Simulated assay, not measured.
Amino acid sequence: MRTRLAAYLDYRNHRWPRTANTHLFLSQTTGCGVEPVSHVWINDVLGMPTSRLREDRLLHEAEATGGDPRRICDLFGLSVGAALRYTGTIDQPGLIEHGLRTAGPAPRPEPG
């Protein structure tokens, strides 16, 4: 995933070197403006719905923060209840058994 993201960012920076658009994804239409690409564009280009991409990022952040619901709330604008649903997944044995997560809890970030 990181390799693909790095390749896309290289392409984005080469294609629109002086864009004022702060969104991650740009298209021919949005590269010279500040509007985001449409959900249809993302679905077509990535081959998956945007909701699936968001869920993937939420789950990754839950694991990366050691299950810190406050961090999830702050980053994604979720309620505490919704954040707890995502952070509650990090110690699920089924994820470890299927190789989707390593054994042991994720390290908690240091305060600061």
Rank of each mutant, 00 (worst) to 15 (best):
W41H: 08
T50F: 05
Y86E: 00
V40I: 01
L59P: 02
Q92D: 15
P69L: 07
G66L: 00
G94A: 09
L100I: 09
R85Y: 13
M48E: 03
I72A: 02
P36Q: 04
V37N: 03
T102P: 07
I42S: 06
I90M: 06
G81W: 11
T89E: 05
P36K: 00
G77I: 00
P49N: 10
G81E: 13
L100Y: 09
C73P: 09
G81L: 12
G94D: 13
D91L: 02
V45I: 04
G47M: 01
R52C: 01
A103Y: 07
G67A: 05
L59F: 02
C73L: 01
R52P: 02
E61T: 07
G88Q: 04
R71Q: 15
R54F: 06
Y86M: 04
Y86L: 05
I42V: 13
R54E: 11
I72C: 01
A62T: 09
D68C: 02
L84G: 05
T89D: 06
Q92L: 03
N43M: 03
G67L: 08
S38Y: 07
E61S: 07
E97Q: 12
E97V: 11
L75P: 07
I96G: 10
G66M: 13
T87I: 07
A83W: 06
Y86N: 02
G94I: 03
W41C: 04
G77L: 00
T50K: 00
T102W: 09
M48W: 07
R85Q: 11
G67N: 10
R85W: 08
E61A: 14
A83D: 00
D44V: 06
I72T: 10
Q92V: 14
S51I: 08
V40L: 01
A83S: 11
S51A: 14
D74R: 11
A83V: 08
P36W: 03
G88W: 05
S79V: 04
S38F: 05
L53G: 02
V37R: 00
A62Q: 11
R54W: 11
G67Q: 06
R52Y: 10
P69G: 01
A62E: 11
N43P: 04
R71I: 04
P93H: 12
A103G: 14
H60A: 07
G67W: 01
L75T: 12
G66F: 12
L84Q: 12
L58M: 08
R70C: 13
G66T: 12
I72K: 04
I90C: 02
W41R: 06
I90N: 00
L53M: 13
L46R: 05
M48A: 07
R57W: 05
G88T: 05
R54C: 11
T102R: 13
R70T: 13
T89P: 01
S79M: 04
E63F: 02
G94R: 10
L100W: 11
L53R: 02
N43V: 03
A83C: 13
T89A: 14
T50Q: 10
C73S: 08
D44S: 04
L95F: 01
V45R: 03
M48C: 09
H60I: 00
H60N: 09
I90W: 03
P36T: 08
T87M: 00
R101L: 09
I72M: 15
